[in-house]
Simulated scan of single mutants.
Amino acid sequence: MTTKQQEKSRQTQQELKSAGMALFREKGFLETSVAEITQRAGYAKGNFYRHWDSKDDLFLEIVEDKLQRYRNSRDRVFSDATNLEEALRFIWDFLENMVADHNWAKVFLEFTVQAARKPELRTELNQSKYRLSNKVFAGLVRDFVETDYPPEKIGAMNTALFEGFMVHNALETGVLTLEDVREAAITLALSRGVKQPE
């Protein structure tokens, strides 16, 4: 049974998380401080540190929550895939949902660049609970690959193209659309993973 104190602690954590998410969207990751998060939520800094060791840890928890919601919607439709092309299209539909949240995509890129400079944080961020890793992607397409081309490489290619688009999109160049990148990625994956007629 949950005590009143546990419930209050959960509520505090959720309010801090919501304040952090709002500030990250508004100001970006680097420009947001723990003091601002606690001030927005109406708590002292000590409340923040009861739940997270750092702003990085809060951000990772937010990313994990967001990706879990995206994955739940992806998994509901992914079971209908019958071949590699359908599987890839379902995955790219999932990725498109992530791009639609434009401000959040920018903040995630900002965090990713910062994480690249910190070995422990980089290792943590590379776990599949925080991103569509090559391993997760490979697991999704493995049963549909008809050739001896490694599913991990199909995953890595698609992830690289998607993440490259995210950078391109954040810079607002307007040259490529997600549809351009999606079709190029699917075509490339099919050329490697589907047996071609002789």
Rank of each mutant, 00 (worst) to 15 (best):
Arg10Pro: 10
Glu124His: 12
Gln11Trp: 01
Phe29Leu: 09
Ala22Ser: 09
Ile62Pro: 01
Phe144Ala: 05
Thr123Lys: 15
Asp65Ala: 13
Asn126Leu: 09
Glu183Asp: 09
Val145Gly: 00
Gly193Ala: 11
Ala87Thr: 06
Thr32Leu: 14
Glu163Arg: 09
Gly164Tyr: 03
Asn134Ala: 11
Thr38Pro: 14
Ala44Gln: 14
Glu198His: 06
Leu132Pro: 00
Val194Pro: 02
Val136Ile: 02
Glu36Val: 12
Phe59Thr: 01
Val167Trp: 05
Gln5Asn: 15
Lys106Tyr: 04
Glu85Pro: 05
Gln6Arg: 15
Pro197Glu: 02
Lys8Asp: 15
Ala170Met: 07
Pro119Glu: 09
Leu161Ser: 05
Thr187Arg: 06
Ala156Arg: 06
Ser79Phe: 04
Gly42Arg: 12
Asp143Phe: 02
Arg10Cys: 13
Lys66Asn: 12
Phe144Trp: 02
Met21Tyr: 04
Leu95Phe: 09
Lys195Leu: 03
Glu85Val: 04
Arg142Ala: 09
Trp104Asp: 07
Gln39Ile: 07
Asn72Gly: 12
Leu60Ala: 04
Glu86Gln: 14
Ala35Asp: 11
Lys129Glu: 07
Phe137Lys: 08
Pro197Trp: 03
Arg122Ser: 13
Arg89Tyr: 09
Lys27Cys: 12
Ile62Lys: 01
Ile154Leu: 09
Arg122Ile: 03
Glu110Gly: 10
Ala156Gln: 10
His51Cys: 12
Asp57Gly: 07
Asn103Lys: 15
Thr159Cys: 06
Ala19Tyr: 02
Ile37Gly: 03
Asn83Trp: 04
Phe78Glu: 05
Thr2Glu: 10
Glu124Pro: 01
Phe165Glu: 05
Ala87Arg: 03
Met157Glu: 05
Thr177Arg: 08
Glu163Ala: 11
Glu183His: 03
Ser128Tyr: 12
His102Val: 08
Gln39Gly: 08
His102Arg: 15
Asp75Arg: 12
Ile91Ser: 00
Leu188Asn: 07
Gln39Asp: 15
Ile91Arg: 01
Glu61His: 03
Leu178Thr: 08
Trp92Thr: 05
Ala185Met: 01
His168Ile: 03
Glu85Met: 06
Ala81Leu: 08
Arg50Leu: 14
Gln39His: 12
Thr82Gly: 10
Arg10Glu: 15
Trp104His: 14
Thr147Leu: 03
